[in-house]
């Protein structure tokens, strides 16, 4: 923890994420308006930052709902999607990739060909298939996003492990008769941490963006649930008439992704003592 505070980017990232979590948890108390209340007679109202009675600071959406309130409440779903989908694809993907690269031979071939199989089916078809089998909705969208992203995690991990496994210290460990588990998880995986962390933190953003794509197909969050992706998808038709409908949720996504990346960068530096010695 001390190290995190010492590391500037980790600290900033942590603060951003903490703020986001704060907004997500206390959304109900923070919203200026009821995010679900619609009044279609005041739809597409432009943002009014300093008006006399600026009820809608970030304007209203296509159904006259408060954009700011919706962004605040929408943080829940979007963070959840990002975290759960990325987290589960990370765990499964790293595990499969590491095992494959370390074991080599048949195990590697089977795992990687299986990954190829998933990867080579266009993700939209895969998503439709998964959602069609399980039914549309948030949880199934998360599962779909996670499955689509597993092969990428696995391949990156595998390529790193392949490279590291030839390093002298691993070979030395092998010679010393370290167990496979200890070699793989302690010596090899710890050294692949950096690129995996980067892919994972970038993945947070990708997951949120993919959810937007699924929402575009209607397969993401179902109304009345609010996600930033759904806000972007619904606002895209009005990109010229009411750009605030997509601009602000977009900014929210960028800030979130930025936060996770800063934290990822920082964590990597902390976990990678070699860099410190430079």
């Amino acid at each position: 923890m001390k190290q995190i505070v010492k590391n500037r980017s980790a600290l900033v990232g942590l603060i951003v994420i903490a703020l986001l979590l704060f907004f997500a948890i206390f959304a109900d108390f923070l919203v200026p308006n009821d995010p679900y209340h619609m009044d279609i007679w005041v739809s597409y109202e432009a943002p009014e930052w300093f008006g006399e009675d600026s009820q809608y600071i970030l304007g209203t959406d296509d159904m006259g709902r408060c954009v700011l309130s919706r962004i605040i409440v929408g943080s829940r779903i979007s963070l959840l999607v990002g975290a759960v989908a990325t987290g589960s694809s990370l765990i499964i993907g790293v595990f499969l990739g590491a095992i494959g690269a370390y074991a080599g031979g048949k195990t590697d071939a089977v795992i990687m060909r299986f990954m190829d199989l998933i990867l080579s089916i266009p993700s939209i078809l895969l998503a439709i298939a998964i959602v069609a089998t399980l039914g549309p909705g948030m949880v199934n969208a998360m599962i779909a996003i996670a499955i689509v992203r597993i092969p990428q995690m696995a391949r990156v991990t595998r390529s790193m492990v392949l490279s590291i496994k030839e390093e002298d210290y691993v070979q030395a460990g092998k010679a010393l008769g370290f167990s496979h588990g200890r070699l793989l998880f302690k010596h090899i995986l710890m050294n692949c941490f950096a690129p995996i962390m980067v892919v994972a933190t970038l993945g947070m953003g990708t997951a949120i963006v993919v959810e937007a794509g699924l929402s575009f197909l209607g397969l993401g969050a179902q109304p009345p649930l609010i996600s930033w992706g759904r806000m972007l998808a619904m606002g895209r038709e009005a990109i010229r008439a009411a750009p605030h409908m997509t601009l602000y949720p977009g900014i929210a996504i960028v800030i979130t992704v930025l936060g996770f990346n800063l934290l990822g960068d920082g964590l990597r530096d902390i976990f990678d003592p070699q860099l410190k010695q430079r």
Binding site: L202, G205, T206, I208, V209, A212, G213, F216, G229, L232, A233, R236, I239, T246, G250, I253, V254, T256, V257, L258, N261, D265
Partner: peptide, 14 residues
């Protein structure tokens, strides 16, 4: 980093 993140956090259609 900001340039990169802008790229990755905007949906393609947008």
């Amino acid at each position: 980093m900001v340039v990169a993140l802008l790229g990755v956090s905007m949906p393609g259609f947008w």
